[in-house]
């Protein structure tokens, strides 16, 4: 069996596809120590919190447990409001599995304090968005909130 043979024989290679036997596993992601409190504030109070690092002069949003730059433990929590600006955006024309979407939608990186929240833009025609546009978080009604990023329905223009 010379190495060269593989070029000629490759053509009849079969493959095995487990199909429905693909194993049904899933992952559970806890919000973590900082995430727990961050989402608690969104869920209960409709507020967005950040954690400032006084050594580095950075306010992280979403709030974090530690500063990645100096490794300080961040104990101070500040309400950073629910307004921010569009730092960047994209117009999405395809679904996750690469099918065309019925109508394009907007995904934005919203800058709040020194952090970025990736979220949908709502109440905003695709052609009207611009970088630097002020936006505000639109929360779901309190009783529908579960303690997750989906508690914010979308960000909308101010």
């Amino acid at each position: 069996m010379a190495i060269l043979e593989r070029i000629y024989r490759n053509i009849d290679n079969r493959y095995w596809n487990p199909g429905v036997k693909a194993f049904p596993v899933k992952n559970r992601y806890t919000a973590g120590v900082a995430g727990q409190r961050f989402f608690e504030e969104i869920k209960e109070n409709g507020k967005i919190y950040g954690t400032p690092c006084k050594n580095c002069g950075v306010t992280f949003v979403p709030a974090r447990m530690y500063c990645e730059r100096c490794f300080a433990r961040l104990d101070k929590w500040v309400d950073v409001g629910t307004e921010g600006t569009v730092f960047s955006f994209t117009v999405v024309h395809k679904t996750k599995s690469n099918e065309p979407k019925e109508s394009p939608s907007l995904i934005a990186a919203v800058k709040i304090a020194d952090g970025l929240l990736i979220h949908r833009l709502g109440k905003c025609p695709v052609d009207d968005v611009w970088i630097g546009m002020p936006v505000k978080a639109a929360f779901k009604p309190k009783k529908e909130r579960r303690g997750g990023i989906e508690d914010i329905k979308y960000f909308k223009p101010l």
């Binding site: 992601y29 806890t30 919000a31 973590g32 120590v33 900082a34 995430g35 447990m65 530690y66």
Partner: peptide
């Protein structure tokens, strides 16, 4: 653990 993988690392 309650902590995220990042937080455990930290």
């Amino acid at each position: 653990a309650l902590e995220t993988p990042k937080e455990l690392s930290y």
